[in-house]
Design a binder for these strands. Structure first.
Lengths: 342, 342
DNA sequence: TTGTAGGCGTTATCAT
DNA sequence: ATGATAACGCCTACAA
């Protein structure tokens, strides 16, 4: 039996409604009254009941974070999204509920939105063509995305700038003198379900390589060592002159290393490696420490929440959609250097 | 304007209360009536309003996950906790709010519990002496812990069995023939604030080594490569005969590798390494692939929620506290082998 | 087995 | 500037 608003009102000798107004500032309250109310609140240790407040006011101060658990599992980068989003939400006085909805289970999402529990949603791991997005639009739930669909229209999103990132990766290697560069992407299945990073990085790489007028080769590759190993051998068979490799597939990297051992190549002497869109937290643990294009994960999470709140607080007014692409940060490690003189 | 319960009632030609009872099964409803109600619900796409339900029934079906963001950052293991907890909560029809409360900010926690928003809390990253625990007890909020305080009393918890895990690590090495084993722990600061794993693994290691009658040496070590490198040199200075190293500090490992390079040692020929309480997801990326004692992270998360729900649903009846210690799984990699014949 | 009505703790619309 | 008082949508004795 925690104190209720009426208890505060009585103790401060004012009406219930006055307390309510004093708390959420919807109308003027005299300084003296406000003081008495505050005092009463402190003495009672009063805190407004979130449910009652929500029921009456039609907004709950609760946001949902929609994250599917992808086949490849969740890593450090995803954790950073989550932490960034959670922090940002808290700073704005919002709660964040974690909603591990599988993409297939549209039911779960309907349930979530139908309960009237959330004011909006932040959608993670958005696919090129994502059911959840349609559903949220229909449901009229405010939402924003980390990642984006093929045609985001007027939907707010924050995403990694894959175009820029691949260009930076290629640029770094070209500057070092490389003229034949490989790209090891995520799995064929990620590509075929339209996983955004896989698709966009693929396009970006081709374009960047073409622009730099560099010989290039790409492989889709399962997220495991064996696949990485096989893929590298294939790439080398296709392009024997390969001297550098961009990898957007952390777990395949070690397989590449194994492949290099087999042919007696060393990093970066015989092959430069750049790890794209992975956390330095992880790539620093590899030897040699990998040159990395590190995504602004925490910032993306924060930005996602920010966009969402702008949307909610901003009312239904016609705002321009906020759509931002953030670059990855190039962290030069010991895995990239000049090409060998073969 | 979503449909309300009264709409369902009218459409099914029954009283409002009958719908309510039909939904939450608090009293018998005839099969025919129930059928009509269900049909009406389907046709209207009705879903009970979570807030109204909570306000009236005094329980919200919302749980909180309390996770501080430790100095060393959050990794794969922590992510797995979270995913496990979120999944388990969803399966039981509960929502999970992520509450990134810093340990220092007891205010945030008070706010959370005072709002009447949550039915209970799962506390992550529990310290030997943790303010949050006291606060939750005072607040009368049901909660359980992943990890445990020095004296958990009757509080439910699930934790890693560090005693067993260190014993397994030492045992694995002793079986291979090692007689002088080092232990690289987390940072001095983690130890001094009473971070459970650091403290308990330290004790466990000493005991296991003593029992196995093995020469041993331990170092606390910052979570970074440089610290790991320095620490290994120190250990070797203290125990030149060291042939094996147990590490509970993922980020220090690469520093150890660097140190080994400096003295021309190889893994596992000159030194065996076992990584304790880290995800194989990470240790598989190292070369050689590390022998690992992998924590049952997802299971711990699930278990934490399970305990919490038992507590909540079980009512205030006197239950025996559920306190479980789970072992890590030994995954043998390529980093451990027989000691060198020096 | 079904219906009636009084809360749950706020917000917000009326007055005053 | 402040007070009363309907909602908000549901749950649950209590009555029938």
């Amino acid at each position: 039996m925690p104190p209720r608003m009426i208890d505060v009102a009585r103790r401060a000798n004012v009406a219930l409604s006055t307390v309510s107004y004093a708390i959420n500032g919807q109308r003027a309250v005299s300084e003296e009254t406000r003081r008495r109310i505050r005092q009463a609140m402190d003495e009672l240790g009063y805190q407004p009941n979130a449910l009652a407040r929500g029921l009456a006011s039609k907004h709950t101060n609760i946001l949902a974070l929609l994250f599917p658990t992808p086949e490849r599992g969740l890593g450090v980068t995803e954790m950073e999204f989550v932490v960034g989003a959670a922090d940002a939400a808290r700073e704005h006085g919002y709660h964040l509920v974690l909603s591990p909805s599988e993409l297939r289970n549209v039911r779960d999402l309907e349930q979530l939105t139908g309960q009237g529990l959330i004011d909006g949603a932040l959608v993670m791991e958005v696919r090129i063509d994502d059911d959840r997005v349609q559903l949220l639009e229909q449901a009229g739930v405010p939402f924003s995305m980390i990642g984006r669909t093929s045609d985001p229209g007027r939907i707010d999103y924050a995403d990694i700038d894959f175009e820029q990132t691949t260009r930076d990766a290629v640029g770094h290697l070209v500057e070092l003198g490389h003229r034949c560069i490989g790209f090891l992407n995520h799995s064929p299945s990620a590509f075929s379900v339209g996983y955004g990073p896989t698709v966009r990085a693929s396009e970006g790489f081709r374009r960047a390589a073409a622009t730099a007028d560099v010989v290039h080769v790409e492989r889709l590759c399962g997220d495991n060592a064996a696949a990485g190993q096989a893929a590298f051998h294939e790439m080398r068979a296709a392009q024997p002159d390969i001297t550098a490799l961009i990898v957007m597939n952390e777990r395949a990297i070690v397989g590449v290393m194994d492949a290099l051992d087999e042919i007696g190549w060393r990093v970066p002497d015989d092959l430069s490696i750049v790890s794209m869109v992975s956390s330095t937290r992880v790539t620093e643990m590899m030897r040699p420490k990998l040159t990395t294009l590190e995504p602004p994960s925490t910032q993306l999470g924060r930005l996602g929440i920010q966009m969402l709140l702008d949307q909610i607080d901003g009312g239904a007014g016609e705002r321009a959609p906020v759509q931002e692409l953030l670059p990855c940060r190039l962290v030069i490690g010991a895995s990239s250097g000049p090409p060998p003189a073969r």
